[in-house]
């Protein structure tokens, strides 16, 4: 298996698999977050945290995937730059997109955001420094609403989620291609589906800080 990690197709497959799992995680995360609109966020959080081992398994595996993804992203980017040391005096892109050419930067934006996001919401929630709601549960919902009051926070989320959008737009179809799952007929379908998923995920996540910011959802 060691050689699998060393082969450049193997590395691309690792990128694809880790990326797709993280997208799945994001989907689950978004579904959970949506409970804020029904007022069920605190209940959801409590249920989730009752499954301590599961939470940790998920945290550790996500972290592993994330680190793998980042490691190989940097490695491949550097190798690929090295494979093309000199560019053209006049350059023209035909099929590549802004998203595909800037994966490393959109990825960097997402990575920084993840750290910020963990510090901003997850660490306080996990460390138990959150006040309790009327039913005696940690008031995650209140914390979130409070956390999103500042305009700066909303801007940070907006920019980061734009990065996420770009990253997933290219990431999903690219993953299917790297796994050999996109045939000639399927490729355009996967491409479009990837864009829709990316839009739904980003819009879903973005809706929360935005709506809180404009004051529709209140603690």
């Amino acid at each position: 298996m060691r050689s699998f990690f060393k082969n450049l197709v193997g590395q691309k497959i690792l990128m694809a698999v880790s990326g797709l799992f993280m997208t799945l995680f994001l989907t689950a995360h978004l579904l959970g977050n949506m409970t804020i609109y029904t007022g069920g966020l605190n209940a959801y959080a409590e249920q989730l945290h009752a499954l301590v081992p599961l939470v940790w398994i998920s945290r550790i595996s996500m972290l592993t995937l994330l680190l793998l993804h980042i490691y190989f992203a940097i490695k491949l980017t550097l190798e690929n730059r090295d494979a093309k040391p000199v560019g053209y005096a006049v350059s023209k892109n035909i099929r590549s997109t802004f998203a595909s050419r800037n994966m490393i930067w959109s990825g960097l934006a997402v990575a920084i955001f993840i750290i910020y996001h963990l510090l901003h919401l997850t660490v306080p929630a996990a460390s138990g420094s959150v006040s309790l709601d009327s039913m005696g549960r940690p008031d995650i919902s209140g914390m979130v609403v409070e956390g999103f009051q500042g305009g700066l926070v909303a801007v940070i989320y907006l920019v980061s989620l734009l990065g996420l959008l770009l990253h997933i737009i290219h990431g999903i179809q690219s993953s299917f291609q790297s796994l050999g799952l996109s045939g000639e007929d399927a490729a355009p379908v996967i491409h479009r589906a990837g864009i829709i998923v990316a839009l739904v995920l980003s819009a879903g996540f973005l809706s929360i800080p935005l709506i809180i910011f404009v004051g529709i959802v209140k603690g």
């Binding site: 197709v9 590395q11 892109n93 099929r95 595909s100 290219h170 291609q177």
Partner: peptide, 20 residues
Amino acid sequence: TEVMKHEGFGSCTNHYECQA
């Protein structure tokens, strides 16, 4: 694919410029 890397070619990140 091993030799491709060995020869200094990069890897495919699915830009699809090649097809174009």
